[in-house]
């Protein structure tokens, strides 16, 4: 295969990475934006989404599409339930203190990893893609499911934007983001908003996990890479800026796809981290971050 088609393939792979990354990182960024906390267990929510998808697929047996649709419903619900429990039992008690929250979510990260390792096992298990068709390019055939992933991710991003910009719930979230006390004074149920946002962020990660699992296999350590990439993305985009997150996700995702294809996935992540260093030197608050 000559360079041109090779690059096209790399760009397609990059687009898949970018879309899934944008959804995952958006969840992290939303939680930070509204609640000013960093959820280190975010990658584990992604991993749980993938693991739940595997369970759903094995439950429904033959029908891959049925299992996928079941997972699209179950995974966000399971993960949201877990997120709500975390919020009530842990985050409220430490009063959303940034550093305590980080330590607590690191604790949660290891509890979840160990729970999945003990209950599900150390193997990476494949899940069949719900639909199977090939898009035939003149030089290579490309899995149609990956294009579905791109479409679904774009719809999720647009959906999140619509909720934030066009609904009453979104208005409450934006009000809480700007000034929690003033929002409370105007009758916004700030605690409820916090719980809802934490759950919504977790659900975005879980859906991303369900979408990626037919491409990647479910494994108990699979949460680390998306966590790292999400961190890279939110720092480059500027902490708390949703627009910056999406833009940075596309830049990092595409370059990750291209570098992974031509060199190695590990090198792609190292270079992305070095890019962060560069961004920090030029603009410490990220590309779209609020200036301090």
């Amino acid at each position: 295969m000559s360079f041109g088609p090779h690059l096209l393939l790399a760009l397609l792979e990059g687009a898949v990475t970018a879309c899934v990354l944008a959804v995952t990182a958006l969840g992290l960024s939303l939680v930070f934006g509204v609640m000013r906390i960093v959820n280190v267990a975010h990658g584990e929510f992604y991993m749980l989404g993938a693991v739940v998808a595997w369970f759903c697929a094995s439950l429904t047996g033959g029908s891959a599409l049925g299992g996928f649709l079941l997972a699209l419903v179950c995974a966000p619900l399971v993960v949201a339930g877990l997120a709500i429990a975390t919020d009530w039992l842990v985050l409220r008690r430490v009063n959303y203190h940034p550093e305590s929250t980080i330590v607590a979510t690191i604790g949660l990260l290891y509890l979840l990893q160990q729970a999945v390792l003990s209950g599900y096992g150390p193997d990476a298990r494949p899940v069949e893609a719900p639909i199977y068709f090939r898009v035939a390019f003149p030089w290579f055939g490309y899995s149609g499911y990956k294009l579905v992933v791109i479409g679904a991710s774009v719809m999720l991003l647009l959906g999140t934007w619509a909720v934030l910009a066009r609904t009453r719930a979104g208005l409450c979230m934006r009000a809480t983001q700007q000034d929690p006390e003033m929002a409370l004074a105007h009758g916004v149920p700030v605690r409820l908003v916090y719980t809802a946002v934490f759950a919504a962020g977790a659900m975005l990660a879980a859906v991303a996990g369900v979408l990626i699992v037919p491409i990647q296999q479910a494994h108990y350590l699979m949460g680390l890479d998306p966590l790292l990439l999400s961190f890279i993305v939110v720092i480059i985009g500027g902490l708390g800026s949703l627009r910056g997150t999406v833009v940075a996700a596309f830049v990092i995702g595409m370059s990750d796809g291209v570098i992974s294809m031509f060199f190695s996935p590990t090198l792609a992540k190292i270079l992305a981290t070095l890019l962060v260093a560069l961004v920090l030197v030029v603009r410490p608050s990220g590309l779209f971050g609020e200036r301090p």
């Binding site: 690191i106 604790g107 160990q114 390792l117």
Partner: peptide
Amino acid sequence: AYLFVVGGALL
């Protein structure tokens, strides 16, 4: 399951 110990201790 030593990760339970680590995670639990942090929490």
